[in-house]
Amino acid sequence: MKFGIVINEGPYQHQASDTAYLFCKAALEKGHEIFRVFFYHDGVNNASRLTEPPQDDRNIVARWSKLAEEHKLDLVVCVAAALRRGIKDENLAPGFRISGLGQLVEAGIQADRMVTFGD
């Protein structure tokens, strides 16, 4: 089954990105496909490569990048939401790309299920 994922909150502030990550990992382990992960609202902050968590904490941004690399995930950051919050190509972490809201709608059309993680 193809899943589309929407993440509306930034890393560390809210559990949404953690839950979404663990959901994606479990879905991939079960042989499902993640069609796209779309980052919206403050969720775009998950894509900042300037993030530096303390050594003993999980690295949420790097974790997404790694999962994307291992499973060829399409991590899309909404351009309008990103520009509002200072996320640009120059500070984008590996595996993420910036694109329009049409990518969210397309995910809704193509995926079998859409799951939203937010506040």
Binding site: L101, L104, V105, E106, G108
Partner: peptide, 8 residues
């Protein structure tokens, strides 16, 4: 998002 969805 609503406006974009309508365009699709």
């Amino acid at each position: 998002v609503v406006l974009i969805t309508a365009a699709f």
